[in-house]
Simulated scan of single mutants.
Amino acid sequence: EGAKEYWKLYEKNLPVFKYAAPLTFQRVCFNCHGEIKNFKPPACISISLAASPFLEELDRNYYRLVWASILITILVFFTLFWLIKYLVLNPLNKFIVAAQEIEKGNFNIRVKIKTKDEWKTLSTCFNEMLDSLAKHQEMLEEKVKEATEELYQAYSELKKTEKFRSDFFSNITHELKTPVTAIRGVLELIERKGKAENKHLEIIKKNTEKLSKMIKDLLDYSKIESGQIELLKEENNINEAIEDAIFLVSPLSQQKNIKIVLENGKDLWAPFDYEKIQQVISNLLTNAIKFSPENGKIIIRTKENEKEIVVSVEDFGPGIPPEEKDKVFQKFYRVSKDKREGIGLGLAICKGIIEAHGGRIWVADPPGHSGCIFSFSIPKGEQDGRKKEK
């Protein structure tokens, strides 16, 4: 009871394969052999077979089995290698190549895998990531480009500012030095003579006025450039401002016997700062007188439309070279033909005042003769003030 099967190969004389198993009775056997119901035989079934034919056959097939095993092993190895290479290494190499290209900055590379497994899913996600990186790269390059352009513009503006600063100190030093030197020379002359003559006082007065005008121009432009210009707008007649400006510059025009003609004396009303617009007209007339020949003429014209009033000052001087027309309203700029004294702020101040009124100022060539026409516009108010009486 509890015995197990037993087998063994005996090789004493002739190799024999023996098999033994205990003899037992199954329950179904008791149907026919009831007398052995309680029989427990101490016996077993034993089978012996000659092992020589089997061993000889194994000896004959040993080397074949070895070579077959080697071939099967090699076949299995190459099969596994090919599967690993095709299913794992090839897709992985594609990702490695893509990563190396990305490292070089090439975001246009894409991984193409035609299988329908996890590698395909991974390649799709990888390519979507590259698309996103490429978009971010383009955005970054665009921002860098914009930042570079802004930096370059800022650098250019800085250079311009530095040039303006240099020009300013150069111009202001030279222009201030001239009247100061003249005043000092006259004072030294008076000191030596011990008395002051009228012509000496006239020189001092003239140069003092010149200094005062330079300082006033500097202060005015400083306010314009800093945005602190104050306008006292009221409904005014532009022709009255023109007539007052003509009166202010009459001493200059009389010195050269220049006639100033106001055409279209019709009253034109608009909201503007009377003193500031009068200053603009005076500056334009002063420049026109400077460049006009003796016994010449200056024509002032006015006109209006639904939105604005336009004032123009036409002279018969040498004119402005075409390449300098866009520069005449820049601060410290003087036309190449202008050899007269000044710091080059007059037209820049005019431009600042007109633009503060919401208007515009420009220069053009007159038809049929040399010279130039300076024009400016002033927006009209919502109400027509032409009937207003002052």
Rank of each mutant, 00 (worst) to 15 (best):
E1C: 03
A3M: 09
E5K: 11
E5G: 14
Y6M: 08
Y10V: 12
N13L: 10
K18M: 09
Y19A: 08
Y19V: 14
A20C: 11
H33F: 10
G34Y: 08
G34S: 11
K40N: 13
P42L: 06
I45C: 01
L58S: 05
L71H: 13
T73V: 09
T73D: 03
I74F: 11
L83F: 02
V88Y: 07
A98V: 10
I102N: 07
N106E: 09
R110A: 14
K112N: 14
W119F: 15
T124S: 14
L133G: 04
M139Y: 07
K143N: 13
E149V: 13
E150K: 15
K159M: 08
D167N: 08
F168W: 13
F169W: 14
T173I: 11
T173W: 08
E175M: 08
P179S: 12
T181E: 12
A182M: 12
A182Y: 11
R184I: 15
V186C: 06
K193F: 13
K195Y: 14
A196I: 12
N198L: 15
H200C: 05
L201P: 00
K206Y: 15
S212I: 07
K213S: 13
E240L: 03
V249F: 01
S250F: 02
L252W: 04
Q255D: 15
K256W: 03
K256R: 10
E263V: 05
P271S: 15
F272D: 00
V280D: 00
I281P: 00
S282D: 03
K290G: 05
K290N: 10
K297C: 10
K303M: 04
E304F: 00
I309A: 01
S312Q: 08
V313E: 01
P318S: 10
G319V: 06
E323C: 07
E324I: 04
D326Y: 05
F329K: 01
F329M: 07
F329L: 11
Q330I: 00
Q330K: 13
Y333S: 09
K337L: 14
G342E: 02
G342V: 10
G344K: 02
G344M: 01
I349E: 00
I354Q: 02
G359V: 08
R360W: 07
I361P: 05
I361Y: 03
V363G: 02
I373S: 02
F376M: 06
S377I: 00
E382G: 04
Q383L: 10
Q383G: 03
G385N: 08
K387F: 14
K387Q: 11
K387I: 06
K387H: 13
K388S: 05
E389H: 13
K390C: 06
K390I: 07
